[in-house]
Computed example of a mutant assay.
Amino acid sequence: MKDKNLIIGLLGGVAVGAALGVLFAPAKGSETRKKISDKSHDLKDSLKDTACRISDKISQTVSSLKNETQDVIADAKEILQEEKSNLDNIKQINKSNIL
């Protein structure tokens, strides 16, 4: 979560800094508008790239967690089966001792 906030903060700071730098630069209005447009396209592309990388990382993490969960469930089922077998053995031993 901290990484996400850091990335958003950095990108926001870059966008504000670029916009202020362009607005206060001595240039014609048409040149300034073109610069703002170009910077906004660059920022949009950068945000898309960052979003894709974050999405890929989330997908990998979810997949990894899913696999680990399936492994834990399989292990738990195996342990339960072993314990059930042990319990059945104990029942048989107790039955033979009672009779």
Rank of each mutant, 00 (worst) to 15 (best):
K95Y: 05
K34F: 05
L87R: 12
L87P: 02
L99F: 05
K77P: 01
T61K: 14
A19T: 14
G13A: 10
R33Q: 08
D42I: 04
L23S: 13
I58S: 10
L65T: 05
K2N: 02
L99P: 03
V16E: 04
G13T: 13
I73T: 11
L65K: 07
N67K: 07
K39D: 05
K57M: 06
E68P: 03
V62F: 11
I7C: 00
S46R: 07
S37R: 09
L23G: 06
L11E: 10
I73W: 05
Q81L: 08
I93D: 03
K91P: 06
I73C: 01
I7Y: 04
L10K: 08
L80C: 07
N86A: 13
I8R: 11
N5V: 03
V62L: 13
L80G: 15
K44H: 08
D3S: 15
K28W: 00
L10I: 14
T61V: 04
Q92A: 15
H41E: 01
A51W: 06
I93A: 13
V72Q: 14
N67A: 09
D75C: 00
V14T: 00
E83Q: 13
L65A: 09
N86I: 06
S37M: 05
L23C: 08
K35I: 05
N94D: 09
D42M: 10
V16P: 06
S63W: 04
H41D: 02
P26Y: 08
A15N: 01
G12I: 03
S64T: 11
L11V: 03
N5W: 07
S46E: 03
K4P: 00
D75H: 05
D71Y: 04
L99G: 05
R33K: 13
T61M: 11
I54G: 01
T69H: 10
D38P: 00
K34P: 00
I73K: 04
K84V: 11
S85N: 12
Q92I: 06
S37F: 11
K34L: 11
D3A: 15
A25P: 03
D38L: 12
T50N: 12
